[in-house]
Design a binder for these strands. Structure first.
Ligand SMILES: [Mn+2]
Ligand SMILES: [Mn+2]
Ligand SMILES: [Mn+2]
Ligand SMILES: [Mn+2]
Lengths: 217, 217
DNA sequence: ATATTTTTTTAGACTTATCTAAATTTTTAG
DNA sequence: CTAAAAATTTAGATAAGTCTAAAAAAATAT
């Protein structure tokens, strides 16, 4: 069996691998896991011995098939629990990440199977992230960033890239919720900020920084 | 904050304290936690420093008020999660203990509050054990053991003392479920085994060993 | 009351995950 | 192509929780 710590490293390697080309670096992992590079090196040696990663000294790291399978399993659990917390217990989408960080490590395949069924086999978590299938596939979403949408286009808000409480509460404040339709009515060339017309004709003004973290369909 | 291990020791001390008069012994704890006496002594010193137990060398151990508060909080979480697993996810009462052993350590008061409300503020878990209140009180149940019931009495099955999968499956096999009414129609003097007439007039024969582990009203 | 047995604690060691400081390798710049 | 900078690994420590073996205290039996 694998420790919580090992599971968190696998998840982090998966996350970084999707966001950078090539291998994942020791320093990037140290920053993400809030540890020091030396600690990361120790763990990489261990994960490598367990054949969960491909690792050559100084050359960065990549998940093996088994490592990726495990990472996706943990991400699946995390996202299913987030759905539970929001849909069944009524938590806000800005409140569930930390709790799911703990729940994702509960070891019981039967539990995940039943939870999935109980939630109605959801395809997306409360942040619009796709839930890996029980077979271990990460579904592809063709979403673009709102910051890449052309003037005049009409799109729907489908997910967020940034998951911090502060960002999500910022969206709450502007009543920008997943599923709402968004028309790009103005793009300022100076700072790339955008003016949106959303579902009930309300106008919302968002910075480029925000637009870069919104995914649309 | 307290580690999983510390929480498990507190819970075990609480459990043993309710089942033996006086202080809890090092050896009893070692047996229950499946560790060695030497390891227990180390942990007792640590819990004592944290003021969670009263401990004098060679004199056994007793929970402080704070220690008992924590123990009851963990038991509350355990039993609420068991209700969730049985009532919402459809697990059998013989399948939930191990999973609840992990879920009970998830740290979020808000989670417990919402879970409790979602479950309809249940008073008992799937094994008939009372759920400690949010204020930290363990409700009293006036249950007797079935083995103490007199011939001819009519009672209701309210709980079990033994929680092992094997025992619970044994009860499943005889369709002895919580809430069913039980008339003691015969008590054999030789081995104290009992013949019961249960809800739908079915006759069930149980050993003294089983009767000692059934709680009735 | 003393000797024997049982229980408990101490001493010293191991594992996991972490750290700091130093050494080494790779990358980048001149 | 070398020299400086950056990234990474190694060396040596620490803390939590566990273990075995040995010592000490308490309980039990003669
Ligand atoms: Mn999350
Ligand atoms: Mn999420
Ligand atoms: Mn249980
Ligand atoms: Mn129970």
């Amino acid at each position: 069996m694998h420790s919580f710590t090992e599971e968190n490293y696998l998840k982090t390697i998966y996350y970084l691998a999707t966001r950078m080309e090539g291998e994942v670096s020791t320093n990037a992992l140290a920053e993400m896991t809030a540890t020091k590079a030396a600690s990361v090196t120790d763990m990489l040696r261990k994960l490598s011995e367990k054949q969960l990663i491909h690792y050559k000294k100084y050359q960065g790291v990549r998940l093996t098939e088994e490592g990726e399978r495990l990472a996706l399993q943990i991400i699946r659990r995390h996202r299913l629990w987030e759905v539970f917390l929001v849909e069944k217990l009524g938590f806000g989408w800005d409140e569930v990440h930390e709790i799911a960080e703990e729940l994702e490590h509960i070891r019981s395949d039967e539990l995940v199977t039943r939870l999935d069924a109980y939630l109605g086999n959801p395809q997306f978590d409360p942040h619009g992230d796709p839930i890996p299938t029980s077979a271990g596939q990460m579904p592809e979403t063709g979403y673009r960033k709102l910051s890449e949408v052309k003037m005049g286009e009409l799109v729907r808000l489908m997910g967020v890239l940034e998951h911090s409480t502060e960002f999500l509460q910022h969206l709450n404040h502007f009543q920008l919720t997943l599923g709402c339709s968004v028309a790009v009515t103005e793009i300022n060339t100076f700072d790339k900020s955008v003016l949106l017309r959303i579902t009930d004709d309300r106008m919302v003004f968002v910075s480029h920084e925000v637009a870069k973290n919104l995914l649309v369909d």
